[in-house]
Design a protein around this nucleic acid. Structure first.
Lengths: 335, 335
DNA sequence: CTGAAAGCGCTTACAG
DNA sequence: CTGAAAGCGCTTACAG
């Protein structure tokens, strides 16, 4: 790889001048600029981003960190795509860490990204009291949280109206006559699931149906958890007539459990999921779901991070996006 | 962030010594080492990876590039997880670029990653004659190709036996009595799809059924393409009795098209996909598919890349993994 | 076993 | 408008 020095020699100027050309310093004379640009083209020179990052104090924002809980979840894939879309348009690079619900792994990625001198971080904290993320915020590293915020500290966050989304789903089910509605939730340490639980409860209040906490099951947020909890639910003496599953993977796991027992959806049990998927229509049966705008969430987070980098001291922002209830064929009226 | 200098002052040694401690240089005396380690702990010192990368000549392999065609495809998500799994265990960071089938975007990511001084690259080239990737190989940057190789140049590659996988799928269909079997393929510039086409043809030869090239449709590798091609197929005068779809996303798109027309699978049309998905059993109906070991492919590629970094001149390796035919409910015998 | 010094490839005051 | 020089945070011969 050619470097500044090679370009400088080729165009007979100092490396300082070449650097200025690269950085579009208006003080460089037109003539010099053209000469240097020609050399850059000839030598196929590309600035070394590592050296730039090490040296630069001005926020040129060349590298973003993105830390997510589970890349197997299509929702987070959408978020990644949204972040990446913005990054691509603005010539950032993105370094991704997927911690798979593992707190130690999250910590490691947070450390690595700091050591990589990222200009800012987009993260879905493993839980509401995530010390690792808190520390970054305290160190004044630009951070935007997605999907969930931090409970003890003020931070930029972009998420969805989880309470309303869950409310809509349960309201739909209760309107259809369901009363025993199981909730397969993720861990309640994650604020998202607390909010979804609140929406769940609120719907029961609205319909005057007593809320039964024995029907709320919270564990991990993965496929396996959905499968196993659904199995437990299906074996309950007084089997619920409907299931509300807390995320994509839980839904898919629950579906597998239901199908494995040859229980008919929606005739024998209704199910509605939080998170829609592009292929929901091709599931058996087409799945009713609460859709979250994952791509937009990612894009918005990247924008906010950019603002935060530019204005480190402006007021923190909370952006709440809307969900949309997609009614398909997995829920049915009962008597 | 504290730096070498701070640690050196704190423990009353030179920065060279601190550096040696960090790098486990055996020449450092036990006593000094302990003293320095204590300071590192007190100051919570973490080496700056950017400076290390800029300076270091020895291959400490701290940063891998990973460039994939489509992160929406669950197969590539598995690959990412595999790579990441190995990277995590070995304390690498991974910088991911998702080029979404866009050649310009792929080029940009390749440039960025080079500018980031990656120690090596794992990539699924956009097509067999990918000049960008070829250039990296020629520059002697360690590269491992996944899913598909390069046609004009010798390079490490780990992929699946595509021909055999496709053969197995079509052989299954032909054995079931199907003769008109449409193939929804990705672009034939991608070697993978050429190989799958070969397997497709071979099965016809084995069964003595004439191969009909009008039933082979190749375009993009995304959901939309699968949807649109399937629509075209379903409107054919002499409609095929079976569809073989070339990847996950094409399958999902085709399923949506079939369901939108309320055509019954498998009674009215059979379908089998290349690539399995964790939730295949929950599709309508449970999908028959050719399973590829995406996670293992990613892990193996990371391992091979590591070897390549250590031994830049050893012989290039081709690793061919096996596929597995998963027969579920989307294919049926016909007469 | 340890330190002083050079240097990786840049950027940026400072001087002219 | 341009150049010489310092320095970002490290590593690594070289010398002792």
């Amino acid at each position: 790889m050619s470097n500044l020095k090679a370009v400088a020699e080729h165009s007979q100027v100092s490396i300082a001048t070449v650097s200025r050309v690269i950085n579009n310093d208006p003080k460089v004379s037109k003539e010099t600029m053209l000469k240097v640009q020609a050399s850059i083209a000839v030598l196929e020179y590309k600035p070394n981003r590592v050296a730039q990052r090490l040296r630069s104090t001005s926020k040129k924002t060349k590298l973003l960190g993105l830390v997510i809980p589970d890349i197997q979840n299509p929702f987070f894939v959408d978020v990644v795509r949204g972040v990446e879309d913005y990054a691509y348009q603005n010539n950032f690079a993105v370094m991704i860490g997927n911690f798979g619900q593992d707190e130690k792994k999250e910590k490691l990625y947070l450390d690595i990204l700091q050591s990589e001198n990222i200009d800012g971080l987009i993260v879905a904290p493993i839980h509401g009291k995530d010390k690792g993320v808190e520390n970054l915020v305290k160190k004044n590293i630009p951070v935007v949280c997605i999907d969930r915020g931090l409970t003890d500290i003020d931070v930029d966050v972009v998420k969805v109206d989880n309470e309303q989304g869950a409310f809509n789903a349960i309201d739909h089910l209760l309107s259809l006559g369901h009363k025993r509605i199981a909730f397969i939730s993720g861990n309640f340490k994650i604020p998202t699931y607390i909010e979804r639980l609140n929406g769940y409860k609120k719907a029961f209040v609205k319909h005057g149906v007593p809320y039964n906490e024995n029907l709320v099951f919270a564990r991990d947020t993965d496929y396996k958890s959905g499968f196993e909890i659904a199995n437990k639910i299906l074996e309950l003496d007084d089997r619920p007539t409907a299931i509300f599953s807390g995320n994509n993977l839980l839904t898919l796991g629950a579906l597998e459990a239901i199908h494995a027992k040859s229980i008919k959806i929606p005739e024998e049990i209704s199910i509605i999921g939080f998170d829609d998927m592009p292929w929901s229509i091709s599931l058996n049966p087409p799945l009713s779901a609460v859709r979250q705008p994952g791509f937009n969430m990612g894009r918005k987070a990247a924008e906010m991070l950019y603002d935060r980098i530019l204005n480190p001291n402006s007021k923190k922002e909370k952006v709440i996006l809307e969900t949309e209830l997609m009614i398909r064929k997995s829920t049915i009226r009962i008597e």
